[in-house]
Design a protein around this nucleic acid. Structure first.
Lengths: 243, 243
DNA sequence: CCCCGATATTAGCCTTGACTAATCCTCAAG
DNA sequence: CTTGAGGATTAGTCAAGGCTAATATCGGGG
């Protein structure tokens, strides 16, 4: 089953266009990154990938078939896909690039925390290994990006941490913000203005899960909010012992 | 004459793929840059462009037709082309990007002078205006890149300078190296090792144009060489009054 | 048991940019 | 005047990635 096209073709054989060392086209890199996020526990369905990547479902099916041919993903029940070990390695290399770039843009160039994602998203596909290493060196080998995400090391290892969404803490808990998940600039900016930034300490004053009302004290200020989006703020409990 | 295809097509209308603000595909940007270099005085012939860009002549003809449709180049006798004012503006924007990037890679990241061209060549197409401005700011608005080329300002203005190839100087002349033209890493490295870098002072000890032998004193050292390539070293005479 | 609705896939196209092969000009030398 | 050598151009393809429209296919309700 599946086409097994040789992809060598006749005369030309252009390279895929300056994808900076990795022999993967930009599109492939994006698919692998998406899979890293979406197929974390179980295989990601075609539709979810399509939504995430902003392309049509048939495009996803098609590309997944090619990636499977290239042994970068494995296909599962009803088209769902996940990364092979090799695909995972590649995806982590891209994530590393992304996070180093974000760190650079914020720390060195002084760009805004919540703006920087788009730029990194583009540059991650085009920065050569040499420049990437130089950036890394320039910043003294950072281990976290500006949102608090761990930066994979050059071999793709990520420090695993046990973090919880803010909404899961009981009233009275103390915690430190560790990670802010992107994907929605507006929300990120709101949190930032509320003081919810990596490193900030907070106390849950009240958590009413039924009515979806949370009252949090951050950096001395009170913040009352629904949970909408609060799941993007990952914290580490302190003070009391862990759940 | 010429096709006048509407290029709107049917359903989709993808954008051209992250070309950082300018609405020009990467390929178009490369063509414009090539024209800026090759069609400086007279229109550049198709073959010269093809050689410069590493593509076939038909590809050039084809692309020039499209660029002409878009009013970025004007076509002349026997297919030769030159930039329109608008094309020129665009090309200079790209050159500005390139030179700012090179300057950054050398000055801030400490990469090697003669290595940096390739990286800048790729990144110039993908760095957003925002990041470019930040880099420019970071380096305090440099006016020359590491090879001594002037960096166009944000509106495309370049400081015009009257420089001469080293081989044109008479024996006895004193001069300061101002610009090193790229395009051949090996030669650039040779010059660099010989001390021919922007800012270096030199004296022509002997210039025998007939036998193509030049003897130059740079930074205290003697350098005897043929002219091959010396035309890439542009200098400004000092001491005696200009020719 | 049949049909609906959500998903996935197949078919067929489009656009970009490049390629080769085959012409077509144009000019200069015999 | 003819021929030939260089360009330049036309014609026809290709590969990557995307898209739409039209099918499958699977999992439940009624």
């Amino acid at each position: 089953m599946m086409r097994t096209r040789t992809m060598s073709g006749g005369g030309a054989g252009r390279e895929s266009g300056s994808t900076a060392g990795l022999a993967l086209s930009r599109s492939r890199q994006d698919y692998l990154k998406a899979l890293l996020q979406l197929a974390d526990r179980s295989p990601a369905p075609v539709t979810a990938l399509a939504r995430h990547l902003g392309v049509s479902a048939p495009s996803v099916t098609h590309m997944l078939a090619r990636l499977a041919d290239e042994r970068l993903v494995s296909l599962h029940h009803r088209g769902a896909a996940r990364l092979t070990p090799e695909g995972s390695r590649q995806a982590l290399r891209i994530v590393r690039r992304h996070r180093i770039l974000e760190t650079f843009l914020v720390r060195a160039l002084g760009l805004d925390w919540s703006d920087v994602h788009e730029d990194a998203e583009v540059l991650e596909h085009h920065v050569s290994e040499r420049v990437l290493d130089a950036l890394d060196r320039f910043m003294k080998h950072p281990t976290e990006d500006p949102h608090g995400h761990p930066i994979p090391d050059a071999r793709g290892r990520v420090a695993r941490r046990a973090l919880a969404p803010i909404g899961e803490l009981p009233a009275g808990a103390r915690a430190v913000v560790r990670e802010i998940r992107d994907r929605d600039r507006a929300r990120m900016t709101r949190w930032k203005q509320a003081g919810l930034v990596p490193g900030a300490q907070l106390v849950i004053r009240a958590a009413n899960r039924d009515d979806d009302v949370y009252e949090i004290e951050v950096a001395g200020r009170r913040l009352v909010t629904g949970s909408e989006g609060l799941d993007g703020v990952l914290v580490q409990r302190v003070g009391r012992r862990a759940t």
